[in-house]
Write a protein that binds this DNA or RNA. Structure first.
Length: 687
RNA sequence: GCGCCCGUAGCUCAGUUGGAUAGAGCAACCGCCUUCUAAGCGGUAGGUCAGUGGUUCGAAUCCACUCGGGCGCACCA
């Protein structure tokens, strides 16, 4: 397949770099012994030789060394003695003892303890922790070394449709995808973020049709994007109206059928568990059929009760087909439709970019579906040549084992589908972009599509490219239904961001007004409200495990208490407050060589937590789960809050202790700033 | 009908792929500001991990079935 040298379609290339440069290459000051900045890997390395003496493959056993799940068990625990004992035919505690005797850990840990059935509990030496903190003092990367072998990862996320308003689902993809990009870059991989926007599909036919028939010229001149959005909604509404009217008898029939089925079952004299279950099922079917009919009737009535809409609907009875025709003509190269496309697209993209700018998100590439249009015919003929694609009911399909439905690459009318585009995109990403890996940050409801896509890709002969669907769950409202406005519309993103910032502003005002002497100017308040509001939205999304559905709840998101972005931002601001109060410059202080002492449990816990940063990062990238980073951030801020409570800096018993605590404070601030930056969340020196 | 996912404290969610007495946040109750930001800290209470059976040293996690819920299944993307 040929990749067109010229980009026939408009594509935007951003040079944006998500993580501040300063965070990327910050060499450590001391270059002596380099421990990997992942304490767990270090411990595992020390266990490896001891285990290799007892067993051929130590790797799975090393996996069983974990952070302790309870502080009483120390800092780390090894759980391998029990399975290993079985393998060796010995008692677990004996096996544990043998391993412990072979260990050389004295520079890192207190003597290991064997507990319960054979757990090995490890407690790091406090002087070791102190040395490590001293070593990474002042480092924004907390000592994290870039990977030795970088991969090139293409991250496909956000991917809105132009002209259709973006909604919370796009927000979720955008926020998760951006966090993944930033984290991958941080550890040293090469990342290409690609916004695979829907700029070539059915909705464009609708806009073109709307533009030709329903355009309000004044509105168009005032704001093309708003007018296009209105036109899309209108055409969609009218198409739906006709489709729904046509569907009403069938829905009515379905209800009647379900009802009579239920009656028949209820009158069945034979009583059995199976029958009872069938009655339950039939009852649910009646309820569902009722709901379907009611929804359809309501949507029809909405049109019929609005004379202007009804008149339009009646004047355009075959609007759906004619809109599809416009799409087909666009794809066929019709000059007028292509001219309109070229006219519409920049405004649509600009509207999207406006939102990305507010969110602080950039893309390396914005290659929409249209970009791949010239490659689609070759994809299909290549699939046919390999006899993967066959004609069925007029459509060109790839039939895959285990899938009832085929993977359609060309429709009966000759049009290509997003399956075709996705295949072309994969080929392009491997051949032109030289990607090693592609991530798709897309709603989990599309998992079957990706399963088919990846299966087809493999059959097609593309090798050496790792493909992963990074799926996420639906965003629900507090009513546990997909998040919508009361009228049933999707919630526009722009208004969502406004709402978040407005709410945050109220909190910022309230807080500052409570002070004896307010600290903040209106401009500062506005800036902080933005940081807190956007941080709240992003954090709410990211701190849920990505594949669970989550409930979008303003009050929780911007709560002034608990596990929110604000908690971390607040902890950061408190560190800045300490340095302000003592009139010490944080940046210059942190480069001084200060002896770190960890005398209290709070200081020790904070230090250990900071040193677990590398482990947290690697857990995130293991399966692209940003919520593991939010958990680490919360634990870190929590450790700091306890430290702040118990360990006064300005009233420290000695200058040495004060300086040691200042080092911890500074490092903690860097940890929070870096960690939040990987999630696309900012901090402020004052809150 | 076929397939995928889920069910953990009153609510919202974690639970590092089979480890020790199942954890957070919110809400509730009790306590802590003349000292670095109380957007904070400490404490109390709250659980049949939907249910039953199985696998084994050991199960919220794996298997089977049952109950309850969600989603997807031929030309929208």
């Amino acid at each position: 397949m040929k990749i067109p040298a010229d980009r026939r379609r408009l594509s935007l290339v951003f040079a944006g770099n998500a993580v501040p440069r300063s965070l990327l290459f910050c060499p450590l000051r001391s270059q002596e012994v380099q421990f990997p900045m992942n304490l767990l890997s270090l411990i595992r390395q020390r266990f490896a030789p001891a285990l290799q003496e007892l067993v051929a493959d130590a790797a799975p056993l090393l996996e069983m060394i974990r952070p302790a799940q309870d502080a009483r068990f120390g800092d780390f625990q090894a759980n391998f003695a029990m399975p290993l004992a079985k393998q060796l035919g010995q008692a677990p505690r004996d096996v544990a003892r043998q391993v412990v005797e072979r260990l050389n850990l004295t520079d890192l840990c207190e003597p290991p303890e064997i507990a319960g059935p054979g757990f090995i509990n490890l407690r790091l030496r406090t002087d070791f922790l102190a040395t490590q903190i001293q070593r990474i003092a002042g480092d924004d990367r907390l000592g994290y070394q870039p990977v030795a072998i970088p991969r090139h990862v293409v991250v496909d996320f956000s991917s809105p449709n132009v002209a259709k308003p973006m909604h919370v689902g796009h927000l979720r993809s955008t926020v998760i995808g951006d966090a993944i990009c930033r984290t991958l870059r941080f550890v040293g991989h090469r990342v290409t973020s690609d916004n695979h926007i829907g700029d070539w599909g059915t909705q464009f036919g609708m806009i073109i049709y709307g533009y030709r028939h329903f355009r309000d010229q004044a509105a168009w001149q005032l704001s093309p994007v708003n007018e296009l959005a209105r036109l899309y909604k209108l055409v969609n509404q009218l198409s739906d109206y006709h489709a729904t009217v046509a569907k009403l008898p069938a829905l009515q029939q379905a209800l009647t059928d379900a009802q009579s089925r239920l009656e028949r079952l209820k009158n069945d004299p034979a009583a059995s568990d199976k029958l009872a279950k069938q009655i339950t099922t039939a009852g649910k079917e009646v309820t569902a059929a009722n709901a379907d009919l009611a929804a359809a009737t309501a949507s029809v009535q909405r049109i019929q009760q609005t004379p202007e809409l009804l008149a339009l609907a009646n004047a355009h009875p075959d609007i759906a087909r004619r809109a599809r025709d416009e799409t087909a003509r666009l794809h066929a190269g019709d000059p007028e439709n292509n001219a309109l496309w070229n006219q519409f697209l920049p405004a649509c993209l600009e509207a999207l970019n406006q939102i990305y700018r507010r969110l602080g998100i950039t893309f390396d590439l914005t290659l929409g579906e249209s970009y791949y249009n010239p490659m689609l015919a070759d994809v299909v003929s290549s699939l046919k040549a390999r006899q993967l694609a066959t004609l069925s009911e007029g459509a060109t399909c790839v039939f895959l084992e285990g899938n009832a439905a085929p993977f359609i690459v060309q429709k009966t009318d000759g049009a290509y589908t997003y399956a075709t585009t996705d295949l072309a995109t994969i080929q392009y990403r491997q051949q032109a972009l030289k990607a090693d890996e592609v991530l798709y940050v897309v709603d989990k409801r599309q998992s079957e599509h990706f399963q088919q896509l990846f299966a087809t890709t493999a059959l097609w002969g593309i090798q050496g490219l790792k493909l992963q669907h990074v799926s996420f769950g639906t965003v629900m409202g507090t009513d546990n239904k997909p998040y919508k406005t009361r009228a049933g519309d999707t919630v526009g993103l722009e208004s969502l961001l406004d709402e978040a910032i407005n709410r945050a502003r109220r909190i910022v005002d309230e807080n500052d007004d409570r002070r004896e002497v307010p600290l903040l100017s209106p401009e500062e308040r506005a800036r902080i409200a933005e940081i807190v509001g956007l941080g709240g939205i992003k954090y709410a999304d990211l701190h849920h495990s990505r594949d669970s559905d989550y409930v979008f709840d303003w009050d929780k998101m911007l709560a002034t208490t608990g596990d929110t972005a604000t908690y971390m931002q607040y902890a950061y601001a408190r560190v800045c407050g300490i340095f302000r109060k003592l009139q010490i410059d944080r940046l210059s202080f942190s480069t001084q060589n200060v002896a770190v002492q960890l005398q209290t449990p709070e200081e020790r816990r904070l230090a250990l937590q900071l040193l677990m940063f590398g482990y947290a990062i690697e857990s995130v990238l293991n399966d692209y789960r940003p919520h593991l980073l939010t958990a680490w951030l919360f634990d870190t801020a929590d450790a700091f809050s306890q430290f702040f409570d118990k360990c006064s800096v300005q009233n420290a018993e000695s200058d040495e202790l004060r300086n040691s605590r200042l080092i911890l404070c500074d490092l903690m601030a860097r940890a929070i700033r870096t960690g939040l930056s990987l999630l696309g969340i900012e901090v402020s020196d004052i809150l």
